[in-house]
């Protein structure tokens, strides 16, 4: 999919320029695009390092576990099909907590671990179980307390107040998470109910 989009942008742009007799802008745009990507990556380094440094401390201090303990009861409510003591529950809670802390790199392996545990409970191995769909709803809406990359991006673009959008981001992503969870609940219980165990 991403291959098709990339090709469409490249080929579409070049052909459109050719039709409109502007073929000379293509070279210029390509070169300046490549250069600005490098510049941007370098500008992102500072904030990325700062953030991942702080998050490394959080990881070693067991902050994810603290968050997980606080979120545990709420998350258990969302996964009625997972037995409370099952290892899958622990992995799910850790995944959601890591996502919340904005630990993108740490969250992915945790999420895969949770999926593997859920697969053991899945009766129909090639199709997603209810719990898997709920976990995905939580992860794809990506509720994050501090969107570090966006702050870095804004600061690189010369914003006078790069973190101004944090409040809006929290509010909107919380709403999106609630909507996704509601839709997940509707799909699970009303539209596609599976026979109970």
């Amino acid at each position: 999919m991403i291959n098709a989009i990339w090709l469409a942008l490249m080929a579409g742009g070049i052909i459109y320029a050719a039709i409109n007799n502007k073929i000379d802008v293509v070279t210029q745009a390509a070169i300046s695009g490549a250069e600005s990507a490098v510049l941007l990556s370098f500008k992102l380094i500072g904030v990325m390092c700062l953030w991942l440094g702080i998050m490394k401390i959080a990881e070693k201090a067991g902050v994810i576990r603290l968050v997980a303990r606080a979120l545990g009861p709420l998350i258990r409510l969302l996964f009625p099909s997972v037995p409370p003591g099952h290892p899958a529950m622990g992995s799910i809670i850790m995944t959601v907590s890591a996502n919340m802390m904005g630990l993108g790199n740490a969250a992915t392996p945790l999420g895969i671990k949770a999926m593997q545990e859920l697969q053991k409970l899945n009766k129909n191995a090639d199709s997603a179980s209810e719990a898997m769909c709920t976990l995905l709803a939580l992860c794809t809406t990506g509720f994050t307390l501090v969107p570090a990359t966006i702050i870095a991006l804004r600061s690189a673009a010369g914003s006078i107040n790069p973190s101004e959008i944090v409040g809006a981001t929290i509010l909107v992503s919380l709403t999106a998470t609630c909507v996704a969870l509601a839709a997940d609940w509707v799909c699970r219980t009303l539209l596609y109910p599976r026979q109970r165990r």
Binding site: T108, G111, I112, M115, Q116, L118, Q119, N122, A125, D126, S127, A128, M132, C133, L135, L136, A137, C139, T140, T141, V172, S173, T175, A176, T177, V179, A180, A183, D184, C187, R188, L191, Y192
Partner: peptide, 25 residues
Amino acid sequence: VYFGAVGVFKPRYSLFVGLLGDFTG
């Protein structure tokens, strides 16, 4: 990534739910 890692091929309604979340965002 998540479903691929465990060999699940049918995402069922989760794609719709995820995209609805993005749309809401």
